[in-house]
Design a protein around this nucleic acid. Structure first.
Lengths: 199, 199
DNA sequence: GTGGCACTATGACACTCGTCCTAGCAAGCC
DNA sequence: GGCTTGCTAGGACGAGTGTCATAGTGCCAC
């Protein structure tokens, strides 16, 4: 429903996502969002009557949802090894995207860590995205013949280490940890692969 | 050197750490810090002439340093299995500490994700803590007969998944993911244990 | 042409922010 | 006594915050 114009509303959403990546939810000002989006300040309450919180949930639903879409697509047509590689490629690309390593992070995590979230809507939106990604990865492993419990466990581990390594890499200003986590996940996959033999 | 009184300065540091856990660096106001510490607002620039940034680095050095101390102590006298259990126990305790699950997180990560950090001092302080914890865990594995590269890799994975699972658990308002990550790390340790056979 | 609507562009409000500054208080030294 | 020193208590400042209201603009149906 709605989606009347793919114009300023989308651009504000993308600008907010970018800023959330760099500065987090509380570190991002609405004036900066509209400025980066090339929009008017009043426009924000026209497109997001709920204010900053609605903008943030929109960012999570749209940008986080798009991330989940990509993971689902990759997972649907690839092996777990390829899926992990693809996920880590994406993280590495985001981290070193603008040259200065480690300025950019995950907008979903940023919203999940927002200071004020009275009704828990921000956290819930972020949780939904994490859940989709986890499920997509777990399905990918199961299709590869790995037991449901082990698949779920690996998927949780993959998402957690992905979010965590972003923090480590940003603190270190060095994406080396991403490659380490990638190697570790691939090794685990290899152990699981031949025979998903676990209780 | 210095450390004239263990009074208000320490209490402000602890109050700031607590608030960084709950609301992050940018979501925390200095007025709230002094209020929770029971101190005067002017006192903050008396004890921390560098303002909020110096307070934050002090939090990371003191509270994060204390966390690293604990990990080092546990790692020095325990098996890797026990060390991982101890780390995960700590995280679970922090997460469910106040009853409402997932309000509290990691103050070191919070500072690492601060929006403005011109000279990179905040990031550097956080990085030092992460590095100490990683090294302690890796040493623990090496003492158990595991190769240096694999030990480093596991340690990075442990810290990354620990930080990441805090985000997942907060978003879900459910510490279940912590137990999943714990199980996964223990399983990996078990695979490594008998024979750290990896290239 | 004219009316209505979607949207832009700003101005303003009430806060809160980090930061600074000046009083006031208490203790210790001479 | 007087004096410096360490610290508290809180007022004040300028900037920035989210939010709202109102005037202005362009487009489209009739």
């Amino acid at each position: 429903m709605s989606q009347p114009a793919p114009g300023p509303r989308l651009q504000m959403t993308l600008a907010a996502a970018e800023l959330f990546r760099e500065r987090g939810y509380d570190g991002t000002g609405l004036r900066e969002v509209v400025e980066r989006a090339g929009a008017a300040r009043g426009a924000i309450y026209h497109h997001f009557p709920g204010g900053k919180a609605e903008l943030a949930t929109t960012v999570v639903d749209a940008v986080g949802g798009r991330m989940a879409d990509l993971v689902e697509q990759v997972c649907a047509r690839s092996t777990p090894t390829e899926a992990v590689d693809s996920l880590m490629d994406y993280i590495e690309k985001v981290l070193v995207g603008d040259g200065s390593v480690g300025r950019s992070g995950c907008p979903v995590a940023a919203v999940a860590l927002a200071a004020e979230d009275d009704d828990g809507a921000l956290r819930a939106a972020a949780h939904a995205v994490f859940q989709r990604i986890r499920t997509a990865i777990a399905d990918c492993l199961r299709r590869d013949g790995i037991g449901a419990g082990t698949a779920e466990e690996f998927a949780t581990m993959a998402v957690a280490s992905a979010e965590g390594v972003i923090i480590l890499a940003r603190a270190a200003r060095d994406p080396a940890a991403v490659r380490t986590v990638r190697r570790s996940l691939q090794w685990t996959l290899q152990q699981l692969g031949p025979r998903g033999a676990r209780s």
